[in-house]
Simulated assay, not measured.
Amino acid sequence: MSNMFQEILAFILTTSGWVLVSSTLPTDYWKVSSLDGTVITTATYWSNLWKTCVTDSTGVSNCKDFPSMLALDGYIQACRGLMIAAVCLGFFGSVSALVGMKCTKIGGSDRNKAGITCFAGVNFILSGICSLSACSLYAHRITSEFFDPMFVAQKYELGAALFIGWAGSILCILGGSMLCFSIADSFSESHRQVKYIYKGTASHSHIASYPRGQQQSANQRPPPDYSNSSRTQHFDKNVYV
């Protein structure tokens, strides 16, 4: 029963993490222009993995999609690939976890369900690693440009999408690890049950190996009767005659 509750909790964590990771792809604010050293702000620049935008002082935003995928910087291409891989792995992990959980009636035997749940846990862990790598790579590029004194272009700060992606990645990794540990516990429990059944079967076959009427063990045989001792002998009255 504890393994079932652990699987349910792990499924909630991993699904929530996958939803957060998926929501970072359409989120606009991956990086926002820095206001450090500026007194009057006339425009705010922000961008994500797909477009770059500017918002003026009146609140009107103008966006421009990246014109060419091959002309993009390498880190943006890498972040795109990692985030798409994270979303796909999380989707397959969610379906596999739903099939392999003990509280569902699909997936076959307990051994098959355990393998499917372990596969789901590995998928969630890989999804969290991919998302964590993408957000960290993007954040590293922003911070390196911000603290570079030789960089004279527009400097940016970390956007809200990066923090959402980090939170979703941690939930995916944590939930996937819980799924894998729940499978390890169930395997050890089933091994103990099989061992107990094997011992019971072996003892039963050992008792049944005796012939009929001789199944009583040597330790349970009745003690010998010493009431008629050999020292007490009854002779005929004419034995000395």
Score class of each variant (00 low, 15 high):
Phe5Asn: 08
Ile8Trp: 01
Leu9Ser: 12
Leu9Lys: 13
Phe11Asp: 05
Trp18Leu: 13
Leu20His: 06
Val21Arg: 08
Leu25Val: 01
Thr27Lys: 07
Ser33Val: 10
Asp36Gly: 10
Thr38Arg: 10
Thr42His: 09
Cys53Ile: 01
Asp56Ser: 12
Met69Trp: 13
Gln77Asp: 10
Gln77Trp: 12
Cys79Ala: 13
Arg80Glu: 07
Leu82Asn: 00
Leu82Cys: 00
Cys88Glu: 05
Phe91Val: 08
Ala97Thr: 06
Gly100Ile: 09
Thr104Arg: 15
Asp110Lys: 11
Gly115Trp: 15
Ile116Thr: 01
Phe119Leu: 04
Gly121Ser: 07
Cys130Gly: 06
Leu132Lys: 11
Ser133Val: 02
Tyr138Thr: 07
Tyr138Trp: 10
Arg141Trp: 12
Val152Leu: 10
Gln154Cys: 04
Glu157Arg: 09
Glu157Met: 07
Gly159Ala: 01
Gly168Lys: 00
Ser169Phe: 03
Ile170Asp: 00
Cys172Trp: 05
Leu174Met: 10
Leu179Gly: 02
Phe181Cys: 08
Ser186Ile: 12
Phe187Pro: 15
Phe187Tyr: 15
Phe187Lys: 15
Ser188Val: 14
Tyr198Glu: 09
Thr201Gln: 11
Ala208Glu: 10
Ser209Leu: 05
Pro211Thr: 02
Gly213Pro: 05
Gln215His: 04
Gln215Pro: 11
Pro222Leu: 04
Pro223Glu: 11
Asn228Pro: 10
Phe235Met: 01
Asp236Thr: 09
Asn238Thr: 01
Asn238Arg: 07
